[in-house]
Design a protein around this nucleic acid. Structure first.
Lengths: 207, 207, 207, 207
DNA sequence: CATGAATGAGATTTCATTCAT
DNA sequence: AATGAATGAAATCTCATTCAT
């Protein structure tokens, strides 16, 4: 019991320390950029010594990997929960729910998304974690948009000729609206869900 | 006269050297990324010594500044030429012309745009050139989209309630379509101008 | 009594733990080299925690010291046993017995000898245990060769003018033959005792 | 001309700097050991900055490689010069000349040989330069001893049954005599050439 | 002006040792 | 005593910038 419980206790400590490290890494990576963030600064932010980072993670890359993997999992779960809940609704309602959830998640985890947009450049199969992992995460969003669109087309809510371009275009719009909130401090993304959905579905032209 | 002409000659030489440096910088920055590009590599690519870089530019940042300023000017001129030519046309035609010109320019100067999307992140007033200059360039595109939209609304071709969101949304779509071409090697952006304009104006929903 | 026997028990436990640590240290030091062997690896091999190493030994050096002292004692005992047994024999027989015993010991405790030849370099008074202790051990071998030679000279079995050089030369030959076995996987040292003794006594020249 | 001569001048400078670096490296490596020698210390000894080391050599290993390659070449040339000069002499004279030359070289370049004996341990095909290069150098000595012995046997100056063991045994004796001079400050190796040759040829036994 | 070797601050990573549990 | 996470000094290596030629 004693050994057992102290083992469990130690494990909990380990996990908490690792979570703290990831939180600091998230903060420093998002503030300084993927390249300028130094291990020393992450350690200082986490209130530990540099060496301790290496007791928990093999190297700098492993921290980024663990961070992006953890956050991606949370995002994916959140997206799938919403999609499951709205699966019988019309495309419009589904999209509204999806975007609302996404923007809410973005606001709650803005540092993670700052890292994502910083790191997303470069080919998919890039050797660098700082490239491949952000892209992989964004792909998760993209795939769900694609699925959403396919359903919409199948139910004849969307014009088939849009099926190709629409997911890409929506990704771009989501990104733009969100980046504007973060960096330019303008209108909150979440308040623009309806306008965005309207634009996507009805277009900008007068009838 | 002699002094004069030799001065002019020397100036031309300086300008050519600087243009060569910028071309090399563009190539290296886009290939290696804003952080991994080293002064030595730029010098080697330009066929000169590192020291010479510093005779022409104060430091690393100055090269990036000069590069982005030069390329931005070209882009602005190109955009304004097209807008001037199509200023009496309908919004739809203007937008088509604008996008076609933009995508063509992007394809011709893809290295510049690779640098732009790498550096676009961070607040506008960021101290780093690598952040502020790309943003400034993209703002130039954005402003013109805004103007285009204002005209469209004024002429009652566009719904007023779209005026706010539309420029941002279009920026996002442009970026997404273009990035897809560059990094995923998919359909060329320029071939999708019509589909994009159709989507923007008419939306994705069936009538 | 209770206290006494439990004390003895505890002491035996300590000794066994320390012996286990030394065995692991021997294994790791010989496999990784004197510098690359890490305390963590030794602890892992011994099935204990790093901290425990420090409960038994002051520091890294103390482990090496204890290891080399223990193994040296075994070697010395083995050498002296053989010399005692053959003390009335001729030089030739004594040398054969000595070399046979030495090579057998080397084969049985090859890890120890791998450590020895790694650490033997540097002045005798070197501050580092990793230098002074191996040298001390090899000196023990050397002294016995010296004594052997003195006896041989006294009994007029050996030429006096060889007395100086012979022990050094024999040390070198022993080392060379043995190192060849270990690192080059060639003929086993023990199989060459007779040839070696013949060479030492009769030389290489035709008569 | 100007460019040419200044280029040549610069090249000479480069070579001199590299030679100075190698000299410092030789000094530090031999004094501190192959592992304890730090790049900072080498730079300090050479009177340059750490970075400069890396302008001339890719990394720590490259310095060691260059050092050992350079010194090995010198040694091989010296050995072959002597062997060429004495190629028609008897085995005894040849061996005397070879040992005299070798010990003289060892004395003149003792730091190099200190590095050699430090680094010689481990299998031949070891990935580490600090293992493979020293072994390669010592092999060069060994091969020449082997050749010498083969000649001696062919000319019936040496007993055939010694052919196998003799080169190894001689390597061991050479090493031992030399190491004794360096570390124990005893009799100089070069003064013992005759005694050594006598021992090798005639053995230690009274006739 | 051009050159390119020299500089040294700073980044990542390792590991013997300590110490709270 | 045993544990193993935390520590931080020290090592290697990079690269923007300087400056003597």
């Amino acid at each position: 019991m004693n050994t057992d419980s102290s083992k469990r206790l130690r494990d909990r400590f380990r996990e908490e320390t690792q979570a703290a490290i990831l939180a600091s890494a998230e903060s420093i990576f998002s503030r300084n950029g993927l390249h300028a963030a130094s291990m020393n600064e992450i350690a200082r932010d986490a209130g530990i010594a540099v060496g301790t980072l290496y007791n928990h993670f093999k190297d700098r890359e492993a921290i980024l990997t663990a961070l992006l993997d953890a956050r991606r999992t949370e995002l994916v779960e959140q997206m799938d929960r919403v999609l499951e809940e709205s699966k019988d609704q019309s495309f419009k309602v589904q999209l509204q729910a999806f975007l609302a959830a996404l923007f809410q998640h973005m606001q709650a985890h803005w540092q993670f998304f700052v890292i994502l947009v910083q790191g997303e450049h470069g080919s998919d199969r890039h050797a660098l974690v700082s490239v491949s992992k952000p892209k992989a995460t964004l792909k998760e969003v993209y795939f769900r948009l694609e699925t959403l669109v396919k359903h919409g087309v199948k139910r004849k809510e969307l014009r088939p000729k849009c099926a190709d371009l629409l997911p890409v275009a929506m990704m771009g719009m989501i990104r733009a609206v969100w980046v504007r909130q973060i960096y330019d401090g303008e209108a909150k993304a979440i308040d623009q869900v309806d306008a965005l959905v309207d634009l996507i579905l009805s277009g900008a032209a007068v009838k």
